[in-house]
C-alpha cells in the first residue's frame, strides 16, 4: 500500500486525534507569559503530574513530567522510592495504557508532525527493529530508576540521569527558549548542551524518516504505559469471529502492530487508524 493510500485511510481518525493532541498540548503548556519572558510557571499546579512527556522546564508547562518527578524523588536525599509518581503512572496506565502516547503527549505530537514532512523513502521497519524497541525498558530501569537510586553524591542525592543525558524534550521545549531569552544561561553553555542539541537534531531528523522513533525506542514513559496496555480499562476489543483477516488494520499501523493478532500489543498507541481502516468494523 502506498503512503498516500495509508494517509487517506487514517484520515478521519487522524483529524480527531490531532485536534485533541493540539488542545491537550496547549492546555498543559498554557503559561503563555513564560514563552514571552523566558521564565517558567511557579504556581501550585506544578505539584501535579501530567500524563505525557512534558518537561517541567518548558516555559509554558503548568504541570510536572512524571518521569522527571520520579527521578527527582528517587534522587532526593530523604526518599529512595517515588510512590507518588509510580502510583500516578500506575493509575493512568491502568485506565488508558498507551492511549497517552497517541493522544496526550506533546512530544508525540511533535514527532507526528515531523513525520508529515515529505521524504524520499520513509522507513517502516528494519533489521533489529524489534530488538531495538526493548531499549526503552533498559533506559527506564537504568537511567530513571537504578542510577538516580544508587549513583549518588555524599549527601545521598542522585541526578535525573535520563533528563540530563538522554531526553531531547527538555532541550526542545525548555532549553532552546530559555537560553534564547536568558543571557546568564547562554554564558553557562557547555558540552552537555552540545550533546543534547546533537541528540535533539538526530531525533528530529529520524522523526522525518521513521514514525515516532523516540516513542518506539527510547521513551521510558511509553515503556511504563506499554505494560498496562493489555489490562487498561479503556483498551481495544476485537470481535475475532467477525474478523475476516483481510489485514487492512496491520497495513495502516504506523507502529507495525497487527491488531488482528494482538489488539492490545505493547507498541499500540491507540491512534485509531486500525479502527478506521477495518472494513467490517470489528475493532472497538
Amino acid at each position: 500500500m502506498d503512503r498516500r493510500n495509508k494517509d487517506r485511510q487514517t484520515g478521519a481518525a487522524g483529524k480527531r486525534r490531532r485536534m485533541i493532541q493540539v488542545l491537550w498540548a496547549f492546555l498543559t503548556n498554557s503559561y503563555l507569559v513564560g514563552f514571552v519572558q523566558g521564565k517558567i510557571y511557579r504556581g501550585k499546579l506544578k505539584n501535579l503530574c501530567v500524563p505525557g512527556l512534558n518537561c517541567y522546564s518548558c516555559p509554558g508547562a503548568v504541570g510536572s513530567c512524571p518521569i522527571g518527578a520520579m527521578q527527582a524523588v528517587i534522587g532526593s536525599w530523604n526518599f529512595k522510592f517515588a510512590f507518588y509518581a509510580a502510583g500516578f503512572l500506575m493509575f493512568i496506565g491502568a485506565l488508558m495504557g498507551r492511549f497517552v502516547c497517541g493522544w496526550l503527549c506533546p512530544f508525540g505530537l511533535i514527532q507526528d508532525l515531523l513525520y508529515k514532512i515529505p521524504f524520499l523513502r520513509k522507513i517502516n521497519t528494519f533489521k533489529g527493529d524489534k530488538l531495538l524497541r526493548k531499549l526503552k525498558y533498559v533506559i527506564l530501569l537504568v537511567f530513571v530508576i537504578l542510577l538516580p537510586m544508587f549513583l549518588v553524591d555524599v549527601l545521598g542525592q542522585g541526578l535525573p540521569y535520563f533528563c540530563k543525558f538522554i531526553c531531547p524534550a527538555g532541550t526542545l521545549e525548555g532549553g532552546i527558549l530559555l537560553v534564547l531569552f536568558n543571557e546568564s544561561m547562554r554564558g553557562a553553555l557547555g558540552w552537555l548542551y552540545a550533546w543534547k542539541s546533537v541528540l535533539l537534531a538526530v531525533t528530529i531528523l529520524l522523526s522525518v524518516v521513521i514514525y515516532r522513533p523516540f516513542c518506539k525506542y527510547i521513551c521510558p514513559l511509553g515503556a511504563v504505559y506499554s505494560v498496562f496496555n493489555p489490562i487498561a480499562v479503556f483498551r481495544y476489543r476485537i470481535d475475532k469471529e467477525k474478523c475476516t483477516g483481510c489485514g487492512a488494520c496491520a497495513r495502516v499501523c504506523k507502529m507495525q502492530v497487527d491488531p488482528a493478532k494482538n489488539v492490545n500489543h505493547a507498541e499500540c498507541i491507540r491512534c485509531g487508524a486500525c479502527k478506521d481502516a477495518c472494513p467490517v468494523k470489528v475493532i472497538y
Binding site: 504556581g43 522527571g68 532526593s76 541526578l159 540530563k164 527538555g170 532549553g175 537560553v179 553553555l189
Partner: peptide
Amino acid sequence: VVFEKAVNICMECVGI
C-alpha cells in the same frame, strides 16, 4: 520534592 524541582529551572533537563 516534585514541586520544588518543577518550579525551578531544571538545569539538567535543559542541558546546562
